[in-house]
């Protein structure tokens, strides 16, 4: 099955899923207790006339389906409405905050992949005491939630040692990277443990393969055997885990951004949820759903490159 047809079909599936997700995202806000009007008035008692004005401005009196379709029409034109809290366009708000979040997630991903793969590799190949130490450390890492890691790292490296700033994003790109180092580590810690363990067990399984013994019997140097036959053969599992890792990063960034006061999408989601800023929450929720699906699509498209036995769309009967 050819690549373009597969990609086109998956994109159509994504659009359908996004449509379904948009309905859920929009509906969920209205099922939650409290109304935007009561937040805008922030506890003050308002005159019926003022309440009426607010309801009219946000079309709160229209039937649910009418409101949903109106909102959907705007979203399709790239208009996510105006934020109730910030009183600016939600799309501007997102554009301002997306770079910090994406940089943070990218940094964390880089750390996870480099350290996670290295630890898994060393554990599987060395064995013995080295392996036990790595297993113990990664077990601890897996057991540490990112918000706990955030507090611990802040306490030690920011407050006590003063090596890194405690919060914020700084000015300029280099400063941004410096500010994002601790948050990236906090975000990465749990996932390093996970990736290391997955890599280790996938490599141990590959090490048992007969083709590994055969490669050795053919005089291929041990380092090359590990690289070309053991690590290479565990990449499929690593790639699948990679999709899960990126998804987890996108979710956990909400907690870490709040802990380090980083003005990114995650912190925005947290703030706007507590203030019932529903246009913003809806936009971010949809964005996260779209990112999740993109990650899955990329993983599926990469799989045939990693394993020639996998053909695109093979899980369908037509393959």
């Amino acid at each position: 099955m050819n690549f373009l047809r597969f990609a086109a079909r998956r994109l159509a599936e994504m659009a359908a899923t996004l449509l379904g997700a948009s309905f859920v995202v929009f509906g969920a806000m209205y099922l939650a207790p409290g109304s935007p009007a009561s937040f805008l008035l922030s506890g003050r008692s308002a005159s019926p006339a003022a309440l009426q004005a607010i309801n009219e401005q946000y079309h709160l009196d229209d039937p649910f389906l009418v409101r949903y379709l109106r909102w959907l029409g705007q979203v399709l034109h790239g208009d996510f409405g105006r934020s109730i809290t910030y009183r600016t366009d939600v799309s501007t708000l997102l554009a301002d905050r997306l770079p910090a979040t994406l940089t943070l997630v990218a940094m964390a991903l880089l750390v996870v992949v480099m350290i996670g793969l290295a630890l898994g590799w060393i554990g599987a190949v060395r064995g013995g005491a080295t392996d036990s130490t790595i297993l113990l450390t990664t077990t601890l890492a897996v057991g540490t939630p990112s918000f706990v890691a955030a507090v611990l790292l802040q306490g030690l490296f920011a407050v006590k040692l003063g090596w890194f700033p405690t919060s914020g994003t700084g000015d300029g790109f280099a400063d941004l990277l410096w500010h994002l180092t601790l948050p990236a580590v906090a975000l990465a810690l749990y996932l390093i443990g996970m990736l290391a363990r997955v890599t280790r067990s996938a490599m141990l399984e590959a090490l048992d393969g007969e083709h590994v013994a055969v490669a050795r019997s053919r005089g291929v140097p041990e380092r090359e055997v590990i690289r070309r036959h053991v690590f290479r053969n565990s990449l499929g599992t690593v790639l699948t885990t990679g999709g899960l890792i990126v998804s987890t990063l996108l979710v956990c960034t909400i907690l870490v951004e709040s802990a380090f006061s980083i003005g990114g999408i995650g912190q925005l989601l947290e703030l706007s949820t507590s203030t019932k800023d529903f246009p913003t929450v809806q936009a971010i929720s949809l964005l996260i759903v779209a990112l999740f699906m993109t990650v899955n699509l990329v993983v599926d498209l990469l799989h045939p490159l990693v394993d020639p036995r996998v053909t695109l769309g093979a899980r369908r009967s037509e393959a």
Partner: peptide, 11 residues
């Protein structure tokens, strides 16, 4: 004995 097992399927 078994070429299927002896040759790495990914290379």
């Amino acid at each position: 004995q078994d070429p299927r097992a002896a040759v790495n399927p990914l290379r």
